[in-house]
C-alpha cells in the first residue's frame, strides 16, 4: 500500500518533469517530411540556421511521403515537405494544402551488386536499365510503402512498359534504410535517392551503377496546410518556414549542405 501511495504521488511529479519539454512552448512548428531528408542530415544543417533567423524551432517527423500526406490531412503537422509532385498537386487540389512550391531537388540513382549481372551500368537510359533488370529477372528490392521514392520507382516501370512481378521483384514495405540493408544482404538492385545513399553506412557489395537520367530527377515541394481545414495549426510560423526555405538565405543553406564532400540537395525555388 505504501508503495502504491508512493507511486501515485511520484507519477504525476514525473509526468510533470516530462511535460515542460513540450507544453507551453509555442515557439515551434511540426514538419512532416520524408525519411530521406531526415536521414541525409539536411535538416540537422538547415534547421539551426532557420532558428537563428526566426527563433522558431522545427520538429521533424520523418515518415514515408504517403504517411506525411496522411499526417497533413489529419492536421497533425503544421507543414509538409515531401517529394512526389503529382501527389502534392492532388493534395493542393483536394484542399488540404494552401499551395505547393518547389524547394529543391536531388536525384535518384540505381544501386546494385558490384558484379552488375544485369549490366545496368552500360544502359543508355534508366528505362533501358530497368528493362535489363526485368528481362534477366535479377533481384530488385522495392520500398513498397507508398513513399515518394516508391511512387517514383513505380513511375519508372510504367514508363518502361513493364509490370514488375515475380519472385525477383521484392516489395518490402520498409523505409529506405531498411530496404538498402535488405538489398545489401541479398545482392539486389534498388532505386534510392542520392542523399540517403551517400549517408548510408552499410553498403557491403552495393555500388552506384546508374545515374544522371533526367527521369531520375527528385523534386521536393513545400506545402503549408490549409488554414480553412485546420484553423488550429501554427500557420504564421509555418508560413515563415515556408518562405525562409524559398528565400535566398534558405536556398543558400540547402546548397551549403554537403556530406562526405558531396552536395546533396540543389535549391531550385520557384
Amino acid at each position: 500500500m505504501k508503495a502504491l501511495l508512493r507511486n501515485m504521488i511520484l507519477a504525476p511529479a514525473l509526468l510533470a518533469a516530462v511535460v515542460p519539454v513540450h507544453a507551453g512552448d509555442s515557439g515551434h512548428i511540426t514538419l512532416a517530411s520524408t525519411t530521406s531528408t531526415e536521414a541525409s542530415g539536411l535538416f540537422g544543417h538547415i534547421i539551426p540556421k532557420f532558428r537563428e533567423a526566426t527563433g522558431i524551432h522545427v520538429r521533424v517527423v520523418a515518415v514515408g511521403t504517403g504517411q506525411a500526406f496522411e499526417i497533413g490531412r489529419r492536421g497533425d503537422a503544421d507543414i509538409v515537405l515531401v517529394h512526389d509532385t503529382i501527389g502534392e498537386e492532388a493534395f493542393v487540389e483536394q484542399g488540404y494544402a494552401a499551395e505547393r512550391r518547389d524547394v529543391m531537388y536531388n536525384d535518384f540513382i540505381l544501386v546494385g551488386p558490384s558484379p552488375d549481372p544485369a549490366g545496368v551500368a552500360g544502359a543508355h537510359s534508366v528505362r533501358d536499365a530497368v528493362r535489363r533488370i526485368a528481362d534477366g529477372e535479377h533481384p530488385f528490392t522495392s520500398r513498397g510503402d507508398d513513399s515518394g521514392t516508391h511512387r517514383a520507382e513505380r513511375g519508372l516501370w510504367k514508363d518502361a512498359g513493364i509490370e514488375p512481378a515475380g519472385h525477383w521483384y521484392r516489395e518490402l514495405g520498409s523505409g529506405m534504410g531498411a530496404t538498402l540493408n535488405t538489398a545489401a544482404a541479398m545482392d539486389a538492385y534498388v532505386y534510392v535517392d542520392r542523399a540517403t545513399w551517400i549517408a548510408f553506412g552499410n553498403r557491403q557489395n552495393l555500388e552506384l551503377l546508374f545515374e544522371g537520367d533526367e527521369a531520375m530527377f527528385n523534386q521536393y515541394g513545400s506545402l503549408p496546410l490549409s488554414t480553412d481545414r485546420h484553423p488550429h495549426l501554427k500557420h504564421d510560423k509555418a508560413r515563415k518556414w515556408h518562405e525562409w526555405l524559398l528565400s535566398d538565405e534558405g536556398q543558400e543553406a540547402i546548397a551549403g549542405y554537403a556530406l562526405r564532400g558531396q552536395q546533396l540537395f540543389f535549391p531550385n525555388a520557384r
Binding site: E38, A39, G177, N181, A199, F200, G201, N202
Partner: peptide, 9 residues
C-alpha cells in the same frame, strides 16, 4: 531504428 535505417549498424 533510425541508425539502422541509415546503415550505421
Amino acid at each position: 531504428a533510425l541508425e539502422t535505417s541509415m546503415g550505421n549498424l
